[in-house]
Computed example of a mutant assay.
Amino acid sequence: MNGRRTVAGLFALLCLLTGCAGSQAPADASYMPPQEERLVIYTSHKEEVWWPIVKEFEERTGIWVDVVTGGSSQLLDQIRQEREAPRADVMFGGGVESLESYSDCLEPYACSEKAQIPERYRSEKDLWTPFSSLPVVLIYNTKLVDPAWLTSWSDLLSDRFQGKIAFADPSVSGSSFTSLVTFLDAMGQSPEECLPQLAASLEDRQLDSSGDVLSAVAQGSDWVGITLEETALQWIAAGEDLGMVYPADGTSSVPDGSALVAGAPHRENAEKFLDFTVSLDVQQLLARQFYRRPVREDVETGETLVPLSQVKLVDYDVEWASRERESLLMSWAFYLGGEEEP
Score class of each variant (00 low, 15 high):
T227N: 12
L184H: 07
E82S: 04
M187H: 11
I41L: 01
S309M: 12
S221K: 10
V245W: 11
D315T: 09
W50R: 03
Q283G: 14
W128D: 08
L285Y: 15
Q283R: 08
I117M: 03
G22L: 02
R160T: 07
D77K: 15
I139G: 09
E319M: 11
E319D: 14
G220P: 08
C105M: 00
A88E: 02
V224M: 08
R4D: 08
V213A: 10
R4W: 13
S209E: 04
L13N: 14
A264L: 00
K312V: 14
E229S: 15
P307I: 12
E124N: 08
W235D: 09
E324K: 13
R60T: 01
M1G: 15
D155V: 01
K46L: 04
D77V: 06
A264I: 10
S179W: 14
S72A: 05
E36L: 03
F131S: 09
K125E: 09
S30P: 12
L207I: 10
P191Q: 03
L13R: 13
G302T: 01
S327W: 11
H45T: 09
S101V: 08
Q197G: 02
F57H: 03
E303I: 10
A27N: 12
I117D: 02
E230N: 14
W332R: 08
L329Y: 12
T277C: 12
R5V: 15
G95K: 05
E229R: 14
A110C: 00
V145T: 02
G302Q: 03
A85Q: 11
Q310P: 12
H45E: 04
G239F: 07
S327G: 15
I165A: 00
V282H: 06
P191N: 09
Y335W: 11
V67C: 02
G188M: 01
S72D: 02
G243E: 04
G19N: 06
S112W: 00
Q234K: 12
N141R: 03
K114D: 03
V40R: 05
A218T: 11
R80P: 15
L286D: 06
P135L: 06
G243H: 13
Q162A: 05
D212L: 07
G174W: 07
C111W: 00
A270G: 12
V181T: 15
E341Y: 02
T18D: 05
V261W: 05
E37P: 03
P247H: 08
G70K: 09
W223Q: 12
Y140N: 06
S152R: 05
F161G: 04
V245C: 07
G188Q: 01
F92K: 05
L274K: 03
G188Y: 02
D126V: 04
E268I: 07
D222S: 13
Y121H: 11
E240G: 11
E47N: 04
